[in-house]
Amino acid sequence: MKRYNVQIILAVALAILAYLAQEEIIGKYALSVLMFMGINVILSTSLNLVNGYMGEFSCGHAGFMAVGAYVSSVLGVMLFAKDKVFGPALLDPSLSIWVFPLIVIIGGIAAALAGLLVAIPSFKTRGDYLAIITIAANYIVISVVENIDTIGGARGFMGMKSVVKAMGKTIDMPWMPIWVFIFTILSVWIIRRFISSTFGKGVPAINQDEIAAEIMSVNTNKMKMVAFMLSSGLAGVAGALFAYILGYVNPGSFTILKSTEVLVMVYLGGMGSLSGSVLSAILFTLLLEALRPLQIIKWVVVPFLLILLMQFRPEGIMGNRELPDFFPRLKRFYAFKD
């Protein structure tokens, strides 16, 4: 039974979420907060792979998010919506339900390829110099987007709402919450399986002693490539979902400020703790919403809280431990480390 516990819980949770959203028992606002929570979970867990498990300092995560967001948005609008630049829909809008996950995954793959921009220099460079490269990569992505007029340049790109509507017209279900839920679970699941395999443990081996890793048979370049591409690919998936939730993207959403937000979530949760990243993404989303009435002062309060955290509990909420280290009973439901 133990094997299926988690799957059953997740399936029930998804069903409840879909029902609540469909019957509009939870309002639009609460629903959007929940969806951003999911996106933040994807962002923080995927960045944790590089910054926590591999011990690099990547601060350009939002750049990869932008790649995923734009590629999937343009693709979706091209295929399923009428647009003044891309012309009429290429496919029947009723197909959108089936093609949408593919579009999101293609966004992810594009972002993973953009991850090469950082992965390849990482073969030779570490630490601060690599951090600069990630910042530069973030700026480069934003500048590229700003300079392509077909996708709206600095003004942004829209039309994704009609794709989401097309899905709802075909089968009347709250599609966006469902997809966000599925992709969030999928991301965490992929990362967890990757890092708990002997193959994936090459990543923390690089963190703890790169020279020893290379000499003791770990192909460090390959591991770096896998880690960076997986991380940026998942950021791309998050970006794609983000774009379809808002129905509108512009380069201003993916600046260094956004990257900093993701960084904050990773370190709040604890480097190298997957459940920490999930938890901190949830808490951070709630915190930002709770502080919304403060408007601009929010961005004074949040950094200040973090400075306090760094002073008094710098290892973050979880350190590098996982949930069952604190609540051993959880092991009954799920084997966290296998």
Partner: peptide, 24 residues
């Protein structure tokens, strides 16, 4: 130069990386 924050078992397993024989 052991990987100090991974168990002894993991240290032994990871150095079989060249003959894992499976992919990502």
């Amino acid at each position: 130069r052991l990987w100090k924050d991974m168990t002894v078992l993991d240290n032994i397993r990871i150095s079989q990386h060249h003959r894992l024989g499976y992919s990502f």
